[in-house]
Design a protein around this nucleic acid. Structure first.
Lengths: 228, 228
DNA sequence: AAGTAATTAAAACAAACGTTTGATTTGTAA
DNA sequence: TTACAAATCAAACGTTTGTTTTAATTACTT
């Protein structure tokens, strides 16, 4: 029996139970290869777990995939106050300049997470696979993870450019910013070829972050009532 | 025997041979489900062809996939002078204004292709699957298809904003524009949920095209030597 | 210490997979 | 017609797939 409260079942706190070990390896493999290309046997072997454990704990492979996405993005939600902090800070200082600065930092944080953090990369991989082959899990992730972030960023954008208040294509602004960042995840292999590079160096990453921030803020701040 | 020159083997010109039928169905299925999730049996059944035909004509499933990508993007290259024409026209009129207009039309054409043309959508699907799980075919597609387009768009950008000449983050500008467009393919299911829509209507598509063009051109034209 | 529930383990299941085989049909040229 | 090569076909190949079964083992409660 897997008890979550008692510590007697685990000699060391660091040791993961069978279920947790499955979820951990599943996150890795599903992100790397996708649902169809990941076999339960490979998964069980890498998790050092019997083949039957998957069906014992999760009922089916599909359900393991669904639970893996839930588990992964719940982790991400908990560990994302870094972003939310940024948004809150700007709201205290209500000036457009503060919001613009927050947007620039948001972009920089986003780009660096995607291009340097293995965990963030896994999340992005799982998400892009969901977009190619949507499952019921996508609804949950969008509602609980993406929609709140989109709303928060949009609020920041309005603060940075008050002229946008009530504009009918307001929701597209956050998409313009986020899409530029995500492109450096989705299209990374292509972008590396275009830049004639083997990998993303810290210098290039900084350059990219600065470019997207500058590009987007110019688009935002140069907005005049004529453009609306 | 499949003869490519003689017409006697095909009663009607519209009828496709076994090989062509396989390539056609393969493009569809690989785009919809990906390599791993597409079975040769399903493919052969939908192409009304014997199972052994795949290995007879292509040697293996993997090779069929590779040939499908080659075939598909070679078609795309041939049928893309619509884009190239746009670039050429701007070069004749050498003014920044002409280039800016061309960029706006480029974006509109791009967005509408991605969101309305089934063939363009298939190409985009194949490409996004290649980016998630790169195969040797990616190199070919990038070199022959993407790199030329990136160079042409970059030339257009320099013409639209001559101050960018020689700038070290010049290659990122085309990426900023293209990424915004592609996002409406990659993240379409998510974007629909964000916009609370069932599907993309022609009105929204127009709105998106206008937004991206306006957003990008503002970012481009508001560039001053200070920003460099 | 006994007994019950939870977990692990090994083995086997049918189904589907990509591929190969060998025979048959088809088209063409001698 | 005869001969030969290309194309198509049904059938079966050996693996691998996700899942289930059955038995042994472990952990917890009474």
């Amino acid at each position: 029996m897997e008890t979550t409260t008692s510590l007697q079942t685990e000699q060391k706190a660091e040791e993961l139970g069978t279920k947790a070990r499955l979820l951990s390896v599943a996150e890795k493999l599903f992100a790397e290869r996708g649902l169809a290309a990941t076999s339960i046997r490979d998964l069980a072997r890498k998790a050092e777990v019997n083949i039957a454990a998957v069906n014992y704990y999760f009922g089916s492979k599909e359900n393991l995939y669904l639970e893996t996405l839930r588990h992964t993005f719940q982790k991400a939600i908990v560990s994302s106050p870094r972003f939310d902090q940024l948004l809150k800070e700007a709201q205290t200082t209500k000036t457009p300049q503060a919001a613009q600065q927050a947007i620039a930092e948001y972009i920089e944080l986003f780009i660096k997470l995607i291009l340097t953090s293995d965990e963030a990369r896994r999340h992005a991989c799982l998400m892009s696979r969901e977009m190619s082959d949507p499952t019921p899990a996508l609804d949950v992730v969008v509602a609980e993870f993406i929609l709140p972030k989109h709303k928060a960023l949009t609020a920041l954008i309005v603060q940075a450019q008050p002229a946008l208040t009530g504009s009918k294509d307001l929701p597209f602004y956050a998409l313009s910013i986020v899409s530029q960042c995500l492109h450096y995840h989705f299209a990374l292999p292509i972008i590396l070829k275009l830049l004639n590079k083997k990998e993303m160096t810290p210098e290039v990453i900084n350059q990219v972050a600065k470019h997207i921030a500058s590009f987007s803020l110019r688009a935002l701040t140069s907005l005049t009532p004529n453009n609306l």
